[in-house]
Amino acid sequence: MHLAYPAVLSVLLFCTGLYGVLARRNAILVLMSVELMLNAVNLNLVAFDVWLRDTLHAGQALTLFTITVAAAEIGIGLAIVLLVYRNRGSSDIDRLRDLAEQAGEADPADRDAQQPDTKAEATA
C-alpha cells in the first residue's frame, strides 16, 4: 500500500478536528473534535509502525498509550464540563470568560457582543 493513503487521510482527519475545536461552541463538541485529532495521530503512528517494521513496535505501543491517555482525558474533561455546567448553567465556551483580560470594567453584555476576536483576548 502506498504510504500516502494513510498519511493523507490522517492529515485530513486532523484538520477536520482542528476546525471543530476552533469553530464549535459547546464544550462537549470541542472534546469530540479533540478525539478526532488524537485518532488522526493514532492512524499515523500505526501506518508508520507497519511501514518501518519496527521490532520494538514503538508505534503500536504508543498508539495504545495514546488511546489510554485519551480515555483519561475525556473522563477528566467531561467531569470539568459537568462541574462548569452545574455552576454556570451553560457549557458554551464563548460565555466562560472569567479568565479573559478585561480592559477596564466593561459590562459583560458589551464584551459578549464582540465575539469574533475573543480568541486573541483569551490567549493574552
Partner: peptide
C-alpha cells in the same frame, strides 16, 4: 452550535 469565528476556523483548517 457554531461560534462566531467559524470562518476564521475554516480558513485555518
Amino acid at each position: 452550535a457554531d461560534s462566531g469565528n467559524r470562518w476564521a476556523a475554516l480558513v485555518v483548517a
